[in-house]
Amino acid sequence: MSIQHFRVALIPFFAAFCLPVFAHPETLVKVKDAEDQLGARVGYIELDLNSGKILESFRPEERFPMMSTFKVLLCGAVLSRVDAGQEQLGRRIHYSQNDLVEYSPVTEKHLTDGMTVRELCSAAITMSDNTAANLLLTTIGGPKELTAFLHNMGDHVTRLDRWEPELNEAIPNDERDTTMPAAMATTLRKLLTGELLTLASRQQLIDWMEADKVAGPLLRSALPAGWFIADKSGAGERGSRGIIAALGPDGKPSRIVVIYTTGSQATMDERNRQIAEIGASLIKHW
Rank of each mutant, 00 (worst) to 15 (best):
V117Q: 03
P165E: 06
G142R: 03
Q37A: 14
S254G: 12
S96D: 12
L167C: 12
D129S: 01
E210K: 11
I171S: 14
G216S: 09
V117P: 04
P172D: 13
G90V: 12
P12N: 11
L28Q: 08
D250P: 09
E164D: 01
G142A: 04
E166Q: 14
D250A: 14
P253F: 09
K284E: 15
S233H: 01
A200T: 12
S240A: 13
T126W: 04
G226F: 06
D174R: 03
V214C: 06
R81L: 09
D48S: 08
P143Y: 03
D207G: 14
P172T: 12
L47R: 03
D129Q: 00
S128Y: 00
T139F: 06
D83F: 02
E195A: 06
G251M: 10
A246C: 12
R41S: 09
S104R: 03
D207K: 12
L192I: 15
T262G: 05
K190G: 13
V214K: 08
R271G: 08
W286Y: 07
E210I: 14
R92G: 06
V257C: 07
A225L: 12
Q37S: 14
P217W: 05
E87T: 08
A170Q: 07
L196C: 14
P217V: 11
F70L: 05
K190V: 12
N173R: 13
A16I: 12
A133S: 11
T187F: 06
Q4Y: 14
V257P: 00
T158Y: 01
K213D: 02
G90K: 14
P217Q: 12
T131F: 05
L135T: 07
G263T: 05
S254A: 15
W208A: 03
M209A: 04
A23K: 05
D212K: 04
D212Q: 07
I11G: 08
D36L: 15
H285T: 15
V117M: 10
P60Y: 08
D113I: 08
K252T: 12
F13K: 04
C121E: 01
K213V: 11
D212W: 02
K53P: 03
I275M: 11
L10S: 10
V258N: 02
G85H: 11
P249C: 07
A235K: 02
E166A: 13
P172S: 12
M127E: 14
A183R: 09
Q203W: 07
H5T: 12
I278T: 03
E277L: 12
